[in-house]
Design a binder for these strands. Structure first.
Lengths: 142, 142
DNA sequence: AGATTAATGCAAATAACTTGCATTTGTCAA
DNA sequence: TTGACAAATGCAAGTTATTTGCATTAATCT
């Protein structure tokens, strides 16, 4: 388990290691799929780690801002996150059961292998984020 | 303007043509970019078309369910929509100003041309939706 | 062990969206 | 044209995800 690697890193960076923090990181390593605040909250409860849902939200924000997590854009009204250090990859999302499967590596190199998973692709979402030509010149803060 | 084409189609399908419906379709043709309920509501107000925000939500749902609109997945807490009959394309979304620019056609054929727009791509989102191998066999309703 | 300050819990606030229900209004048929 | 009928609407209230304020707790450092 690589949770310790992140914990060490957090300590180096002078962040406190709390029970919630450690367990949430653990949960991400165990789940190996994108998770929402509510899902994490449920998993914590199962592990008898009793924390407020607010704490989960704050912890996700903390881990996101400090680059331990990244957001995954699923078609849902909830926000989903996964470990940031995972190799760049994409997802296969089932319309029916909602299962999220990984496509290892970038699809650009793997598009031909995707169908091998038996997944019927009905549509896809591709969005590029960055800076437009105008903003690129005068990028201030934020 | 192609609003009439949709209006005709709606009439053929026995849907009513209301002021809100006609104006919202118009707004999508004029905007030529993904819009949220709130944005549409503001544009309606500017046009002195006074309808409740609820009506806008219901109309978006109606147009979505009847395949006149499709959802665009932007990184936002709001839902965005655009005309469904637009040619398959993707978006360039600026981190700073939020501007949404179109990439004509599918990026697979256009990836080399994207940089010509001067956009600095910092990351992208690609998600495939469809049916996984298991669900593919026993796809029931919905 | 005690001080410092980040992290937490709890309650209340927001924000986006949805629902229930009584009223209005397109449409169609007479 | 008019009236009936169902679809569409407005308004108020509800729901869901997420955020914020503030007093309390607890991790870490000395």
């Amino acid at each position: 388990m690589q949770t310790k690697k992140i914990i060490n890193d957090l300590q180096k960076r002078n962040f406190r290691i709390t029970k919630a923090r450690r367990e949430i990181i653990n949960i991400f390593f165990q789940a190996r799929k994108p998770l929402s605040a509510k899902e994490i909250y449920k998993k914590l409860t199962k592990k008898h780690v009793i924390v407020d849902l607010t704490t989960v939200y704050r912890e996700l924000l903390f881990l996101l801002e400090n680059d331990y997590l990244k957001e995954v854009h699923l078609r849902s009204n909830e926000r989903f996150f996964e470990l940031a250090n995972l190799a760049h990859h994409h997802h296969l999302i089932c319309d029916k059961c909602g299962k999220v499967d990984d496509i290892d590596g970038c699809f650009l190199q793997n598009l031909d292998k995707i169908m091998g998973k038996g997944f019927l692709i009905k549509r896809h979402v591709l969005e590029f984020y960055g800076l437009c030509a105008e903003c690129r010149g005068n990028y201030g803060g934020q």
